[in-house]
Design a protein around this nucleic acid. Sequence first.
DNA 1: CGCAATCACGGGATTCGTTA
DNA 2: TAACGAATCCCGTGATTGCG
Length: 295
Amino acid sequence: MTPEKNSLFGGETTPTNDALNEPTGGYGNQRQYVSKVLPAAEMRQREVEKELRHAFGRYIETRQIEVIVFERIPATDLARAILNHPLILKPLLAACNLAGRALKRDLKIDNIDTYEPTLTSAQANAVAGYLLSFLPQYIELPALSRIDRVSFIDKEIRKDKGRWEKLVCEALNLYGHGPFKKRKFEAGGQVFELDAATPAKGDVQIGIDIKRIEARQDIHKRCDEIVNKAAKLKAVFRKSKFGAVIYYPFIQEHPNVTSRLTSPNIDAVVFASGSAETIENAVRLLLAKVEGRKL
DNA sequence: CGCAATCACGGGATTCGTTA
DNA sequence: TAACGAATCCCGTGATTGCG
């Protein structure tokens, strides 16, 4: 990044974007959020660069490097670039701390796949103008690609974690008398979701909550959610059974979780890690407790 | 009392399943 | 198929708690 002024706040040399300048009735948009903290951000940037130079002085080399000079790019060119090369959108957005939600809120463009966008040319124009108002004067190309890489890795990790719930549900179907499937039920006007339940329709007989708790500080929140959901389920389906399958990497604290989940409404609490073996063991144990007379 | 550690909370991100 | 809502993870901030 550049030590010089950022284009957004410096000279307004870049195209302004109408959507960002409309009155918002006191509610902020991304530009306003940024503007508010800009002085602090610029001060920090100067200090960070200074410290980096001092800290790494002996290891800093000067090399020739490709730089993308955003301040020379007209909005129409940027729009065309995005249309012709959709892959470039994500790194540009990420470099500005912008994401799909901001585009939706500020530009009223819904459901952009920021990784592989398919935009109309009108949308590309809007996004280009919007981006240019946030982009710095220039960014080194490898830095930009690195930013994309970080975002991509983060996304893929989330995707992988999302598969864990499916593995547990598949194990329930393999070893239990399902079919187990995600389903909803209503209690007191509110709708609740069970990650795995059987049967798919009619009165719930078995409801399972499948949860990952990866940070210690989330334990209260997650346990409260489980206890609440169990109570709601039992309030509606008095004869049903409720169980929880939990991923919690602090094994020595599993008894804590179990005791927090002690409730007449919860019939089983089991733990599993990412391995197929622990999932199988947990699911078998849980099924033994909630299936009872079935079969 | 002052400082450090911990807690609670909320905002922002992405993914997935459901629904219109 | 597009849009939406639920769920989960990450992070920073301010409040609270605990210790010397």
